[in-house]
Design a protein around this nucleic acid. Sequence first.
DNA 1: CGTAAGATTGAGTCCGATCAAGGCGAGTGG
DNA 2: CCACTCGCCTTGATCGGACTCAATCTTACG
Lengths: 249, 249
Amino acid sequence: MTFVNRRVILISAKGRGLIRAEEITALRGLRLFDGIAEATFADLVAAGYLQFFPPGVTLIRERDPADFLHVVVEGTVELYAGSGERETTMELIRPVGAFILAAVLSDQIYLQSARTLTRARILMIPAERVRRWMAQDAAFMRAIVAELARGYRQAIKALKNQKLRTGAERLANWLITQSAEQGTPGQVNLDIEKRVLAARLGMTPENLSRALASLANHGVHTRGTLIEIKDVGALGGFAKPDPLIDGPE
Amino acid sequence: MTFVNRRVILISAKGRGLIRAEEITALRGLRLFDGIAEATFADLVAAGYLQFFPPGVTLIRERDPADFLHVVVEGTVELYAGSGERETTMELIRPVGAFILAAVLSDQIYLQSARTLTRARILMIPAERVRRWMAQDAAFMRAIVAELARGYRQAIKALKNQKLRTGAERLANWLITQSAEQGTPGQVNLDIEKRVLAARLGMTPENLSRALASLANHGVHTRGTLIEIKDVGALGGFAKPDPLIDGPE
DNA sequence: CGTAAGATTGAGTCCGATCAAGGCGAGTGG
DNA sequence: CCACTCGCCTTGATCGGACTCAATCTTACG
């Protein structure tokens, strides 16, 4: 486990790299910045530190005070949490997504840790700045409310997913959702390691293997990093997808 | 399962009873109304329907559009959710608490159902009114942000509780938290049925019985509706309470 | 009292975790 | 170019937690 002292990184952060035009566009596309004043957006981005991190770096640790809002511009970040000996993955964040907004807003400690899974480009905006603009720009406040509500509902869905389904069912539904998102109806391409997927689905790697094997009965066949779904309808019969759990919104 | 058509209730809601002075005070104490203008508060309450419900009444059903913000003034309300055959308890709401704020704000459908466990007094505020005041009263918007963030973090905690602990551990931690909240260090008084507690802790009634029995090893003895903890410290050794899961905030 | 609902206890089963061993594959160094 | 090696994935065996089904006990209440 590679822990990195954030403050040290910041001090040495001359590599506060320039932001490319298309990245600005992508950032603007963030729900969190939807409709806010140009000046607000510009200042938030200008106040932020944008930098690359290698894979496996711990960006924040639960229990630390929330002093930055993090936005994933490139790469994949894993949110996880532990208690005692145990540890579990809470969520995977991909571009362009912000994480742990709630802690930043109420000026509290993080409930989750975050680490990079791949090389990743992260924009870090000082929490104080976020709070200040929230008070000054009503549109920003509205966007924050919307984003908070969205995150809240997503957490509720995750809880339902965990409590109401078996591992195999979670996997099956993930496959259905994923194939739709990738725009490839009959197949899913794994862009993360299976161990990570297992954690994300709340099971061990061994169990994921077995779950995948058992889904063969429902027309799921995996060849390397590619998973093929013979009949999405049949798989749906087993998975019983539920928009109140799997829905995007 | 007793389902009640909400619209019918509303039409027949002449019993839109008066609000007692101490209830007004209690409502004002709601975090959601913290610091908002008197006029805002008065209008929200005036626009609301306050009424009694007998135990076992379904107040809202998942999948229905969110047209009211509900506030529990008296009694206990259970939030629950289902998918397919299965059903699980998500949260218990006691006075004075609001529920399902997120759905109301983003004008979406409920992800959870709610039913009264006891006779309960509920204030229902039209969602549209909440959204309107949110746009007009900055302090109200701030309170909403704070309350949303709180709910969000609570959901994250619930997810951690569920994923990182066994049933017996959840019970032990619940006992510790509860004894503190009740202000009775060495004991906990059950004010809900054990079956409800079991659901709330994410287990079956049978399992709760066994878990309680197994906690006898750690000095927990139950007599009827009263649970005694011989040595809170010893129980803590087993439960390993974690402020990032059990903390009030 | 008598009944019914809730609570406990026991037996069997399932799901998922753990432990241990073996296979596959990508990257490295000879 | 091949052999080695180190991760990762898979497979098997076992164990523990939790659910189900069924029977009994307790309690509240008519």
